[in-house]
Structures are given as C-alpha cells and as structure tokens.
Design a protein around this nucleic acid. Structure first.
Lengths: 211, 211
DNA sequence: GGCAGTTTCAAACGCTTATTTGAAATAATT
DNA sequence: AATTATTTCAAATAAGCGTTTGAAACTGCC
C-alpha cells in the first residue's frame, strides 16, 4: 500500500488505463484494483467516473507541458521556428515512455470517443493550442489566404504528429515497423525527418499560393 | 417496409450507425429499429453483432472502392502519379456524402476502438493498401532508405488524409472551420492544396536524403 | 478514553444491452 | 391442402458496470 492519498493513487492508476483503453472501455473496478482502493472509492472521492477522467486530463496535460515546454506563442521566436519547436515537442512527447507520454495517448483516445467531458476538455486543453498553431501557420504563409484554406493547412500540419501518434499507439498490429520507434533506437533522425516533411509541406503550399 | 431482404436491410441500416458511433456505442436494438426488423433479427441472420459489423465493413469498403477507383499499384502510372491518385481518391471519398463516404468514417471509428473483428478487418482491408502506398513511397524516394524511415514517411503521407478525415468527422465542435468543407463549397482547390502539402513533404524529405 | 468526522468496505441496486427462447406467422415444397 | 422449413416476434435471460448504501474501521481532537 502506497503512502499517497487515495485520490492521488486513483488518478495515477487511472491515467495509464484511460490512456490505453479510452474512457468507455475502462471500468472503475479495474481502476480501483490498480489503485489498491475499494470499488466505491471513485464515487466517494470524485463523485463519478467522469470527474476522475477530467482529473486525469488535468494531470497528464500538466505533465506533458512540464516535460516538453515551448514558448507560449510564435511572436518571440518567429513562425517557422515556433512551428518546429511545437512539432518537436509533440513528437518527443509521443515517443517518451514516462507519465508525460500518456498524454498523447489519452488525447488520441478522446479524439473519436464522445465522453461526458468531451466538450469541456476540448475547449480547455485542445482548442487554445490549435489556435496558436493556426496563427503561426498564418504568419508562416505570410499572405492572403482563405479562412478555409488556412484551417485546412493547420489541420494538415497538426495531422503530421496526430497521425504519427495514432500509428505509434497501434504498433502491436501495425503492418509496418513503427513499433521499432522505441527507446532502443535513436529517434533524433526520425524526428528530423518528420519535421522536414511537415515544413516541406507548408513551404510547398506557400509557394503555390504565390503563383 | 422495404422490399429488400432483412439481411440487406440490416446491413444498410447498420452502416451509417456504426460509421457514426462506432461498434461499441451502437446497440443492436437501434439497428433493428432502423432496419424495421425485430430485435432478434441480428442474431438470427448474422449470429451476433460482431458478424454484422464485419459485413458492414465488407459492404462499405466495396462501395468506396467502386466509387473512387484507382490503379491497383503504381507500376503502370509511376509512383508520384499513383500517390496523387491515391490521395485524391481518399479525399474525395472523405468529402462525399453518399454511402461510400461512410467508409472513411467507419475506418476512423475502428482506428482506436478494439472491436472483436479488429485484427481480421485490419489484415483484410487496411494492410494491403498500406503496403501499396509504402511501395509507391519507396519508389518515389528512389534511393536507399532505412526501413524505419520509410515506414515513418509512409505514415506521414497516409496521415495527411487520415487526420483530415478525423478533423472532418468532428466538425461539429471543431474550433476551426473544417465544417465548411461541405457540398456547398467547391472542394477542388482544397483537395489541390492537400495534395500540394503531401507531395511537398515527400519531395522535401527526398531532397534531404540526397544531401 | 471518548467522540465527531472521515474514509473504507462488501454487498446490493438499477440500468443497459447482447443474446436466447419458444411460440406465432409466413413461405416453400410436395 | 398439408407438411415442413424459414423467418418474425415479444418476452425473458444473463452479464457487465456505474453507483448507492449502511455498517465498520480509522483519524484527529478534547
């Protein structure tokens, strides 16, 4: 039995389970078992399962932010540099194997599950970041561009790390070899390559908008 | 009451529901109601819910393939051209609004749900395509490249349409404006832009591998 | 030590949902 | 028309799971 308080044990135990299986497929029974707590502990301490889930989000997003910090926006370092920093930060987080690494997994699971807290989590944790990226992309393009086209481009840029996360998560039955991205391999050149791809895409679009 | 056979009505009714809500959140009760069939119809005709789900996959992947056909592989048209055709085919399918358009939605839902048929569906419908893309990307790069790097690049390329699909599916609470990609808008320039992004990324990586 | 407040516990409740059942209705076959 | 096979039906079954409950154990305070 750990010396932590029960609430902390529950959050810590729930995090990897929610990140692995998503909200719906995770049972409070298994969380309580993993936390060495009684079946009623979740409801007693958090009211219900959904509130615990929201606490896990708070916990993991904070962990990820602390582990891979980046400038608040692109104004100080410039659009291109900030986009690079953003992408690298996300990629390192995806491939890291400690608590912070659970954050992308959790987000990925939430992406196509409609949990009771979806709206709230989305607005609190995802939307602000997305707007920052959009602004940086806008600045990077540096010229007139349709709203829709800018949104599309932002989605494409974000998609680079999002889909990589997705592919990485399912490594067990991936037909390719993404599971080789492990701590046993030097991921630097891989991250470099992804950066090249993403920025290359942005540049090509910028170029096409000029002509 | 339709004149179709009950099995066909069940598949046709189940397709949009599974595509919208995923396997787990879909109940056989609502499928039967939508198909104007009795609650026991699914088990009688398909054995269980999972088998009906597999039939829906068969049905929708066939519909998508028929609606947006592409050459079997890149050997006839060349790697770059085939990759363009592949991407366009996928994008048009994502944005189309009839039955074929349900296929990407279904795939998207399956992506992070572990349904009883996951392995089987993955091997039958997803893996072969992925290998074709990988081969085309390999050819496009046209030089020595690490296995892992090639897989990564393939994932990046695939990710362009996958994440776009993801973003499009959740248009309702998307903080940006992806929901504007509707039939009321001319999607041609948007598809062009995505193509520019994806191919631009590939070219930049190819260039970097040369140096 | 005694007491109030807090936390833990095992059992039970209530709800949802996939599946089964056995009879009734319908279709096919002779 | 009669018999058999197939399909439909409403009700029942069974299992999973979030939540509640009320008693027991524990903690801090006087």
């Amino acid at each position: 039995m750990s010396t932590q308080k029960t609430t902390d044990r529950l959050i810590a135990a729930a995090a990897p389970i929610f990140a692995e299986k998503g909200y719906r497929e995770t049972t409070v029974a298994e969380i309580c078992e993993a936390a060495d707590a009684n079946i009623a502990a979740v409801n007693y301490h958090f009211g219900d399962k959904a509130n615990l889930y929201a606490e896990v989000w708070k916990f993991l997003t904070a962990a990820a932010k602390a582990a891979f910090p980046i400038p608040e926006n692109h104004l100080e370092v410039g659009a291109e540099q900030w986009l690079r920093l953003f992408l690298r930060s996300r990629l390192e987080c995806i491939f890291c194997e400690d608590t912070a690494g659970l954050c992308p997994k959790l987000i990925f699971k939430e992406m196509n599950e409609r949990t009771p807290k979806h709206e709230e989590l989305f607005l609190s944790y995802l939307k602000p970041n997305r707007i920052r990226v959009r602004n940086a992309v806008h600045d990077f393009i540096g010229q007139e561009i349709e709203e829709t086209q800018l949104d599309l481009l932002t989605q494409n840029f974000m998609g680079v790390h999002i889909s990589l996360n997705a592919g990485y998560q399912k490594h067990k039955n991936d037909p390719l070899h993404l599971h080789k991205f492990s701590k046993f391999q030097n991921i630097r050149p891989l991250i470099d390559q992804v950066e090249t791809f993403a920025l290359g895409g942005l540049k090509e679009v910028r170029k096409s908008l000029n002509s």
